[in-house]
Design a protein around this nucleic acid. Structure first.
Ligand SMILES: [Zn+2]
Ligand SMILES: [Zn+2]
Ligand SMILES: [Zn+2]
Ligand SMILES: [Zn+2]
Lengths: 137, 137
DNA sequence: CTCAATACGTTATAGCATAACATCGCCGCA
DNA sequence: TGCGGCGATGTTATGCTATAACGTATTGAG
């Protein structure tokens, strides 16, 4: 399990369950993956998972990976204070590495400023092979 | 209609139709949007559209926007020779601005090198408001 | 207590994408 | 000319992802 936030105590039951599932997973999970893991805990419908995910993502405790239609627990205690977050996703083992880069963020800010574009959020996802999987290939 | 590639002459009928639909659209289209536009031309099934899109994306004539599950025609005659491409997507009017940034690409390359990560492709999508829509708000 | 806000549960439906299989047309080659 | 491979096509069925719409339950402020 990846290094991650402590689980906040003010989560609702469903939010706690969903975050727990993400925290205990080695890689990203789709909403339906999560649902399957939590049927034993009484969850029955996709909406229960999606609603919890919405809140978790909103609070920065989880992130959505657009190119996978899947979710991961945030791996960085403080990432919600940063702006742009990037994800490197290994096609081999499925592991996700989360990082931030101030230079990229600044560069993007410059572009936006020049264009008059008001940035609300940015997704950056790198697909490829992690070192282990690249060497194994 | 955005500035775009000339339509290559070696496209198949379906590929030509799909690229035409994208070229004539003001904004991104989902595969099903495209299908609806092309029913009059004899297309009937999603797969016909998806197969054409696969080829167009492979050749760099179209791009997939992961955060929208939609597609746009490439707006840059030479983008397939560049590496990373970024898209700024306006939540107001739906227009998409495609651009490349060598500094960001280099920075990403540095990160990958340091980590031993072998990059295969990168998606970068900025959501927000274009200048026009931001001022109108 | 009462009201408003938020979470929850459930069913149904919408939207996105691919599996599987048959067919067709083109081109290189015996 | 006729065979055989290959890529594009057509069609049906299916699976995965996400939200609409409705009602109930819980909580907390005034
Ligand atoms: Zn994070
Ligand atoms: Zn790996
Ligand atoms: Zn392009
Ligand atoms: Zn706009």
């Amino acid at each position: 399990m990846a290094h991650s936030h402590e689980v906040p105590s003010d989560l609702t039951r469903n939010q706690g369950l969903v975050l727990g599932a993400l925290n205990h997973s080695e890689g990203p999970l789709s909403a339906y993956d999560i649902l399957d893991k939590l049927r034993g805990d009484g969850l029955r419908a996709p909406l229960q998972v999606y609603r919890a995910l919405d809140k978790l993502v909103e609070r920065g405790l989880a992130h959505r990976l657009e190119s996978l239609n899947a979710f991961v627990a945030c791996a960085d205690e403080h990432c919600h204070r940063k702006g742009l977050i990037a994800f490197a996703i290994c096609e081999g083992c499925g592991k996700v590495d989360e990082f931030a880069d101030a230079v990229i963020e600044e560069r993007l800010g410059d572009w936006a400023k020049a264009k008059g574009f008001k940035v609300e959020r940015t997704t950056m996802e790198i697909r490829g092979k992690c070192e282990t999987c690249a060497l194994a290939a």
